[in-house]
Amino acid sequence: MQNEEDRLELLEKAHQLIESIENNDDETAGDLLNTMSVVREKSLFKEVGQLTRQLHDSLASFALDDQLTELTDKEIPDAKERLNYVIEMTNEAANKTLNAIDEVIPVTNEMQRQSEELSKKWNKFMSRDLSLDEFKKMSGEISVFLDASCKNSKFVHEKANEIMLAQGFQDLTGQIIKKVIGLVQNVEDSLVELVKFSGPVETGSAINKEEKGKLEGPAVPGVVVEGAVNSQDEVDDLLSSLGF
């Protein structure tokens, strides 16, 4: 029922209806029943009409909101690619680091063994316990050891640099994960919009997107970014074409 007035009117008619039935006044009873059902139908039509309008509006806004389509068609599969790439990058960085360590440890072990051996001989020499032949042998060994030390220190240094560069994964995967967090936020917002659509009164508005100037972050294999270069060489070529 629309309002109190309608309710009272209906109540009044109901009383009249009971009265006319009690009085065996079929004609009045029939008229009253007709009037009452017309009122009922009218308000029912009005409500159905309102519901139809709401449904139409919701469907129209929903269809217009390409945010959800974009999310399900592109961004969620992209997010999966991105997260897989994070696993790949962390795996690669861990392997690079462990490989470098595997190469370094035998070298430092060998250096340690040789320096301990030479140290013993040197102490013997210092306490004048070394024969001339032993001294000559030790001199040769020291010479070889010094050469090897130079070479090995350089090797260890290079490996340390490899380990250091491998840690760049933290920045790159961090950027990728931040983007995925942004996507999860978008999904949440879109779901909130969806809940609003299915609500009785409110209509949702499409979420605005900032496409222009959007930063894409690290390149991810399998995720195509329009207009992105594929290597440092392409960056160099592009810059030199611009007069750099």
Partner: peptide, 9 residues
């Protein structure tokens, strides 16, 4: 990490 031509330009 930005590798779009538009950004390099």
């Amino acid at each position: 990490a930005e590798s779009k031509r538009e950004q390099i330009i």
